[in-house]
Design a protein around this nucleic acid. Structure first.
Ligand code: ZN
Ligand code: ZN
Ligand code: ZN
Ligand code: ZN
Lengths: 154, 154
DNA sequence: GCTACAATCTCTAGCGACTAGAGAAGCAAG
DNA sequence: CTTGCTTCTCTAGTCGCTAGAGATTGTAGC
């Protein structure tokens, strides 16, 4: 007679369903990304099904390199689907610019490091190109400028 | 009569000479990258000229993305110039591999994010491609796998 | 019911490489 | 002497988790 009520899930099952670790889910709750679910008699968290979608969203955004603060805003927007998506798009564009800066920086670093390695004749430290270049930026190819951009994430 | 003795420098001048910030220099001392210099009567650090070269080495290596622990080993080698440079080279090769992994990962992310942005018609959140893709990895181009590689540094 | 064992709970601390701030003391010029 | 700059030490914050301790709860087998 009752409509099939989906059972609330304990945190471990939620972790399985989303690919996140249990402490990570608790962490997301702690920082307010995931609403605190109701608890069982014994104080265990019991999640509604909607938590899975929310956590998958978070996980996917993290895998794509979005910062937690951006994800917070994106989730807010996802919760208000009638608003304009301009803000979501600008977050994504900002993120893309960030990714591209990081790639540019890493490419420059990679070239310098490649050159160091290629230039080494495998003898003593005294004659090692790696050590020599590290000691003197003048021997670098280019500027590989100190990043104003942070190259972060897992 | 005396040979021209270079004056020991206070930390601020060292910061100027190396482009590092004063607290950063103290931090490097604290973690044992830079030896503790003698102090003045008033307990100020007074650095010998050799500190400049050492700090420039550190700074340059950091700008090239080497981790502190690698730099510690590289400095040890630089202090023993008669040894083989094999270890220095393998540190550099490892670092290069790391850089290349990061570039690969960022390139994959960048493609996904570009697609999200390009697919958006700038209307409501409900129809926003950015939000839709974040909610469903199935709409991604590829795998942009969760990094075992850390994309770090400034 | 009882006994294992697994899952979950809270809380704290650690990672890397700094950066920021407080509050005290030293130092040089006017 | 006073003003203002530099330096000192110490603590805490950044980011996104992760690891661990120690306590409690839930569950399956007997
Ligand atoms: Zn070499
Ligand atoms: Zn250089
Ligand atoms: Zn949009
Ligand atoms: Zn995806």
């Amino acid at each position: 007679m009752n409509p099939p009520t989906p059972r609330p899930q304990p945190i471990g099952r939620l972790a399985e369903a989303t690919g996140l670790k249990v402490p990570t889910i608790r962490y997301y709750e702690q920082i307010g990304l995931l609403p605190s679910p109701p608890r069982s008699q014994g104080n265990r968290r019991l999640y509604p099904d909607s938590a899975i979608a929310r956590l998958r969203f978070i996980r996917h955004a993290r895998e794509l390199g979005f910062e937690i603060e951006s994800i917070r805003q994106l989730l807010d927007m996802a919760d208000h689907p009638d608003q304009s998506c301009a803000d979501a798009d600008s977050i994504a564009r900002r993120h893309l610019a960030d990714i591209q800066s990081k790639i540019a920086r890493l490419t420059a670093l990679g070239e310098e490091v490649s050159q160091m390695i290629a230039g080494c004749r495998q003898s003593s430290v005294r004659q090692c190109r790696v050590i020599q270049v590290l000691a003197d930026h003048g021997q670098c190819l280019g500027e590989h400028l100190a990043g104003s951009v942070k190259i972060n994430e897992k």
